[in-house]
Design a protein around this nucleic acid. Structure first.
Lengths: 198, 198, 198, 198
DNA sequence: ACCTGCGGGACCGCCCGTTCGT
DNA sequence: ACGAACGGGCGGTCCCGCAGGT
């Protein structure tokens, strides 16, 4: 059973995720959250001890949205090489129709959180590692299943794929121009076919 | 002749660039700048109308530092294919020994500045375009000089190179682990030799 | 029911009215209000969006105090000619035992508020118009009731009475010498008897 | 001989008088004076020890302008009764074509200066006394010369005349409506003819 | 001798994140 | 869940002294 309080908490998280991902941790004030949720300060602080705790919850929610997209894609894509292409396309689709405005939450948090925000930084690391590991696992499984060439350097390829798409999403968002992501997806497709697929 | 005021102004910019690139625009307070410069508020606001004007000056200074590195590298590298590799290595070197702590100022500013910071956003766009155009020009000249293959898609290749290295620098910084940049540089080297070099 | 917040808000207004009427809008700092109310900045800004909003509320409170005095006098004075004399005496009494130190709030605000303080200026205009209209109405009713001579110029007489007493209060306050108001009240009495009373 | 320095000092005073009379002592910043004079801070502080000293000089200059007007009128008006009317008309003319925007400097200073501005307050008192004494002297001389009735109360009449016109100028300025001063001048004319003139 | 403008530091009005009584 | 109160920090402006150049 879901209590009223949990519903409110979830609503706050959903709304806060939008604001935090758009304006950043420092750029977002609790007043912004108040406006967006329609709650008073006390109502929010009832559910979260402080701004950071809320930001962490919102970040994890944002990550879960993106992960769900990936899972969804991977459900309908069994071949490892295809999955890597699907992964690239998820970034492209995410740009066109994002769950949250403001770009990739992991990159946003990684860039903004410094030594003064260790908790968020750690969360960003964990989320990025999760993404990295997912790609690694796909490649490794692909090698096992003879869908991907045996000589491929798993770690290195993963780094390339992740870097490229994070960078391309950032570029497309900076210019409001999807062509950067478009080209990157095409490049990933060619790269997979020429260098990875068995 | 350089007046005392200009010297002070430059000093403020240099110190501010460090802080802004580490903590971000919102994360940086004027008190941080005061502490770093050793000046009082009045002393700083004598040279800059407001925080944004200082941030813009600091950003432009940060960009100039990175550009100088690139130029320096390009001075000792004539071949276009070698220049692209040199470009990748500049990111790697920048990570190991950065002019400013905090990573790539362009990416930082691109990620943090939203619709509420239009001036900084535009500056980030301009700086990124400058970088993009530099790479484009190298490839195009390489094609003219028969150093790079005729069939190479200039724009697309540039997007890939820029995305990959911005993304890789972000990854290496997030983990404090240079291996991401290392692998990316190796990948760029291979990519240049196999796909670009004539 | 009166909430705690309303009580506090009223208290702030009462205290602020004292300070604003003494030191003026610019001369009063929020720290002055803090000291007087015993509240912290946040406690005050909870109830008023900004200094101007507080100043307006304080001004309206100050006006209401003076209006109450007038009403009180007019309750016990039915004859129009007597009421005009009572009106003059209210200024005299107000000097001797003011609700707020600092003189006439309307004159203070009229003099200090310029084009940069349009809201306060408008409030001062409205309050002065209210006062003017009150005197006008008394004279007009007095003419209807044959208490005041038919040939009296209502508007002109009102202007004279208002000007004279505002000016006299200012003079008495400038010198700390009630004789200016004393003489003016005597003059009003003579003026009413010789020129106005039927 | 007038040195360059004295010229500059006078120019500063003239410009400052405009600003101080418009915005008040607190409402005027030294930057306002800088903008108006075109001088730098040091250039101003060379001639005046601090803001207050400048304000005092500007006030005295403003007073002198008004006094000159009065003197001018009194030069061409020998009869005492006529002089009192002329005095009223000077206020009217001053409203229509002021030497300085912002109304009567004496009233402005009297209203704004409180216990925190003892020097300005004293200057305002002195200037008002000067005006008061001038009117007193006219009436007294008028009595001596049989231009004004013997039984007139000099002090009281002066207070009435001064109060009325200061008040009326304030009213006309508050509303931007000269009719208040117009009526007051007419009333003074009638008052002089009926009550004062021999 | 005179002016310029740099730098200081207190203070401004305001908003922040937070606590706690209701 | 509200909203009053907190207290400190925000970006920014103030007035002013003083070193240094002409």
């Amino acid at each position: 059973m879901v209590t009223k309080g949990e519903q409110t908490r979830d609503m706050i998280i959903r709304q806060a995720a939008v604001v935090f991902n758009s304006l950043g941790y420092f750029g977002t004030s609790m007043s912004d959250i108040m406006r967006e949720t329609g709650l008073e300060k006390g109502g929010i602080y009832n559910h979260f001890r402080n701004k950071e705790e809320l930001a962490v919850a919102a970040f994890e929610y944002a990550i879960s949205l993106f992960s769900n997209r990936l899972e969804q894609e991977f459900k309908i894509t069994r071949n490892a090489a295809d999955r890597l292409i699907a992964y690239a396309r998820v970034f492209y689709d995410y740009y066109l129709d994002p769950d949250l405005p403001g770009g990739c939450p992991i990159l946003n948090t990684a860039v903004e959180s410094d030594d003064a925000q260790p908790v968020l930084r750690e969360k960003a690391r964990a989320a990025m590692s999760e993404l990295h590991d997912t790609i690694c696992r796909i490649i490794r499984k692909g090698i096992e299943r003879n869908e991907i060439r045996r000589e491929v350097d798993v770690e290195s390829t993963t780094t390339i794929l992740v870097s490229m798409l994070e960078g391309a999403l950032m570029l497309s968002r900076l210019y409001g121009d999807m062509s950067h992501l478009e080209r990157t997806v095409q490049h990933v497709e060619a790269f997979v076919e020429e260098n990875l697929r068995q």
